[in-house]
Simulated assay, not measured.
Amino acid sequence: MRVHHLNAATMCPRGAALITGKGGLLERATMVCHVLAIETAEGLVLVDTGLGTGDIARPSRLGLTFTAVLAPRLDPAETALAQVKALGFAADDVRHIVLTHLDLDHAGGLGDFPKARVHVHAREHEAAMARKDMMAKSRYIPGQWAHGPSWQLYDATGEDWFGFAGVRALFADEGDVLLIPLHGHTRGHCGVAVRDGDGWMLHAGDAYFHTHSLDAEPTAPLGIRLFQQLTDTIGAERRRNQERLRQLRQSRGREVRIFCAHDPDEFDACCAGRPL
């Protein structure tokens, strides 16, 4: 398989020192929306979609808090659709979309690929459809899936993978793309593992936000740690899963390259093929 790393939305919140550990308190940080485009025997597979053309056309649907605090650039050239086309594919070539979760900055491009089958954990789908509280109403945007996607839902059953349980292979004929339950940030949040030669890469979504969160002695900046706590649905689960990811990176880092959705340094390293 050939894997392309895409940034499908740049976000520029103020407080760089508190978010990335670099720059001043009033400077703008840079955060990415790390998306994978995978060429497989099943066709083109996307892992997450970032923000889509519908979000750029109607940024109000993202909500005032999101646009004011995270300050997305809303650049049409950064949409997954534009970048898929730049790679020489058409929208209909995207046959599958695998979502780490349904937060607005991960599911925004769903409508740009209406023929794709959308793979997501059943717990996440249930939470997004119900939108039971104010946090859920702000993070899950029904307009992003108003086209009526073809959903493929997964429950808690599955196999083990490097100590993680309930892991599901997404395509029956191959075990090269796996859904890894990493609940906590949202109710059904998952990682997505992709076979990479003799090893694996693991897109951990929002299981953590800063690469130093997985250090043996975590040193993520204060602001990003507070932001993670504020956006947790089930904090205890997220912390347990983050610790398991930390142990996996420390013990099997050569076999499994772990990266999150929003860290720009991890994104740059992946694009350049550098170690994480």
Rank of each mutant, 00 (worst) to 15 (best):
R117V: 11
L18H: 09
P221N: 08
E42K: 09
L170D: 06
A29D: 08
V84E: 04
D232G: 04
L18F: 08
R249L: 11
A71I: 04
C270T: 04
L182Y: 00
M129I: 08
L102Y: 07
V69S: 12
L230N: 13
A8C: 15
T65G: 10
T211E: 14
G197P: 01
I38E: 01
A136M: 08
A17I: 14
L178N: 02
V35D: 04
P59D: 15
V32L: 03
A136V: 07
L179K: 01
H5D: 12
S60P: 00
V177A: 05
Y154L: 01
V194C: 14
H210L: 13
A207K: 01
V94I: 10
G199V: 14
D173K: 10
G191I: 00
S138C: 10
V69R: 13
G163N: 03
C271F: 03
R117S: 10
E78N: 06
L179V: 02
H5L: 08
A204K: 04
G191T: 01
N241H: 03
D263K: 07
T20M: 04
A8F: 03
A165H: 03
I38Y: 07
V192N: 05
H121F: 00
D75H: 13
A57F: 11
T67C: 09
L104F: 09
G205P: 11
G175V: 07
P59F: 13
G143Y: 02
R95T: 15
T30F: 05
M134K: 12
C270D: 11
L178R: 07
L179M: 10
A41W: 04
T49W: 02
A128N: 08
H189A: 03
A272W: 10
A80T: 13
A272C: 08
G184Q: 05
A130L: 14
P264G: 04
D268V: 10
T219P: 05
W145S: 04
E255Q: 12
M135T: 09
I180A: 04
P142D: 01
Q229A: 14
A57E: 15
A172H: 07
F171H: 15
